[in-house]
Amino acid sequence: MTGNERLMAAALDLITSRYRLARHQIGAALLDADGDIHVGLHLDAMVGRAAVCAEAVALGVARMATNAPIVLAAAVRHPKPDEIGPARLVPPCGLCRELLLDHAPGISVLVADAPGPRAVPLADLLPHKYIGTKWSA
């Protein structure tokens, strides 16, 4: 199994086992430079702003486990009961694009493409990233 396949399988396994309507809809997996995978689960909230994306949870899990650079991310969305079709690969939202690039500037993400998923540099999905003054870019 390739790194891409391992990553997608980890995200899919997590959301398949933990899916709960209006609570947990997305599972994410991050691959570090040592080859380890770190997973996170989307945490929805009654107040939308309090929700936490799966990629952010996975990043926190990764940072608790290692200082190794994070090199690849994948997120899988579970279909709602009234939706037809399987779980699908989804790109990170804008907030997660910013967060991941803050902590892993060289990261790539898996995106759905024909004929199958491919890794693209996250910076290509967010070409004009916000650069603040908290730390050096």
Rank of each mutant, 00 (worst) to 15 (best):
M1Q: 10
T2S: 15
L7K: 05
L7T: 13
A9T: 15
A11H: 10
L12A: 15
L12H: 07
D13W: 09
T16Q: 14
A22W: 15
A28Y: 11
A29Y: 03
L30M: 11
L31P: 00
A33G: 01
D34E: 15
D36R: 14
I37M: 07
H38Q: 12
V39I: 11
L41D: 04
L43A: 15
D44V: 09
D44I: 06
A45S: 08
M46L: 08
A51C: 06
A54P: 04
A54V: 13
E55Y: 00
E55T: 15
E55D: 07
A58K: 06
L59P: 08
V61H: 13
A62F: 00
M64A: 15
A65E: 14
N67M: 12
N67V: 11
A68F: 08
P69C: 07
I70W: 07
A73W: 04
A74T: 08
A75H: 07
R77Q: 06
R77S: 01
K80G: 05
D82A: 05
D82Y: 10
E83A: 09
G85T: 06
A87P: 09
V90C: 09
P91Q: 06
P92F: 03
C96Q: 05
R97V: 02
E98L: 11
L99A: 08
L99F: 01
L100F: 04
A104M: 06
V109S: 01
V111G: 04
G116C: 12
P117A: 14
P117R: 03
A119Y: 01
L122K: 05
D124S: 09
L125F: 03
L126V: 01
H128P: 07
K129S: 06
Y130Q: 14
I131C: 10
I131R: 06
G132A: 08
T133G: 09
S136I: 10
